[in-house]
């Protein structure tokens, strides 16, 4: 084919037409992009407007984490009213997932006065996030009291324990962040104790009884399947468990609670044991069994059993910590 023939051929026509169409389209879109592109500032303004309900001026605040169960992603101080707008990601959701929320923290007179709004931004692994309706989220505003730590059982209108836990953690994280920024930080006395990896130290409390024994009201964190458990454990002066009672079973939707070790469910497995006895239940010290076989607590609800055992380990290992006695004498117990 000669050059002249090529320029007269259908192939050339096709190439030319396609090139022209592509060029014209490209030029058109470039012009339109210049005219219609939404800038980052505009996008941010829209997001704030949607969350806050009105257009407000904000000032970015340096982020820091004051709560192990949440990550503060972004923080802004609203210039108009002094409130804080926090984007926080709560951990501990179903299947180790997370929920990211925007939280408007009402601040007045240098102190947190409430939660104005909670909006879910995104999530990871929370298949039933739609069950958390606006009605459920409004409860964060309605239930707020000074010093509150939200737990999933406080929030009704949604039957998703794990997802609610992650949202509560996000809100608690936002509250801790704002309180820290305002200089209102409360000391977490259990933070330096042994075996706190799976313990919600800020939700846990204790009281010293007349006979010298200590009753712990322990709240555990959730694991992959189960949400947190609430367990009351009394440890005598020798470090031996005298009473063990699960007050709230975090086992997933009750489906696993039937598979839990009977001695753990009613506490008889732990009563009479000190830390060494509790540690001996597992072959490899107090660490989460990697499978569902080979240990006494592997019953098909290993994670649930483990959280309960971990709570017992926490209580028996720390029963003689000086801070427990001092705190109780000074403040009548941390509540």
């Amino acid at each position: 084919m000669t050059v002249k023939q090529f320029f007269k051929s259908t192939a050339f026509k096709c190439i030319l037409t396609l090139t022209c169409v592509l060029l014209i389209s490209g030029i058109f879109l470039t012009i339109m992009n210049g005219l219609l592109a939404v800038s980052d500032a505009e996008r941010f303004e829209r997001a704030i407007n949607k969350i806050y309900g009105k257009s407000v001026k904000t000032e970015a605040v340096a982020v820091a984490n004051y709560n192990d169960n949440a990550t503060i992603d972004e923080a802004y101080k609203v210039k108009d009213d002094g409130n804080y707008l926090i984007k926080a990601t709560g951990k501990g959701g179903y299947d180790n997932g997370t929920v990211t929320c925007w939280i408007v923290v009402n601040v007045s007179g240098g102190a947190v006065k409430g939660i104005d709004k909670v909006v879910i931004e995104s999530n990871k692994n929370q298949s039933y996030i739609d069950r958390v309706t606006d009605k459920a989220l409004n409860q964060f505003t309605e239930l707020y009291t000074d010093g509150i730590i939200y737990t999933q059982d406080l929030i009704t209108n949604a039957t998703v324990k794990g997802t609610k836990t992650a949202i509560c953690n996000a809100v608690n994280g936002a509250l801790d962040f704002v309180n820290a920024k305002l200089g209102n930080v409360t000391e977490d006395i259990y933070a330096e104790f042994d075996f706190v990896e799976y313990i919600e130290t800020k939700l846990t409390s204790h009281e010293v009884n007349e006979d010298g024994s200590i009753t712990f009201h322990i709240v555990t964190k959730g694991l992959k399947e189960p949400s947190g458990f609430k367990v009351d454990i009394t440890v005598d002066t020798n470090g031996v468990v005298t009473k063990y009672e699960i007050t709230e079973n975090g086992s997933t939707s009750g489906a696993y609670s039937d598979k839990m070790h009977a001695g753990i469910l009613d506490g008889t497995l732990f009563v009479g044991l000190d830390f060494a006895g509790i540690e001996s239940i597992l072959d490899n010290g107090i660490s989460l069994p990697s499978d569902n076989s080979g240990t006494e607590i592997s019953t098909g609800a290993t994670h649930s059993n483990y959280l309960c055992l971990y709570a017992a380990a926490f209580a028996t290992k720390n029963y003689d910590n000086e801070k427990l006695i001092v705190e109780d004498v000074e403040e009548g117990g941390q509540e």
């Binding site: 259908t10 096709c14 037409t17 396609l18 169409v21 592509l22």
Partner: peptide, 11 residues
């Protein structure tokens, strides 16, 4: 041209 009409439509 008929041979390239579909790509053109898509663009």
């Amino acid at each position: 041209p008929g041979a390239v009409r579909i790509p053109c439509y898509i663009v």
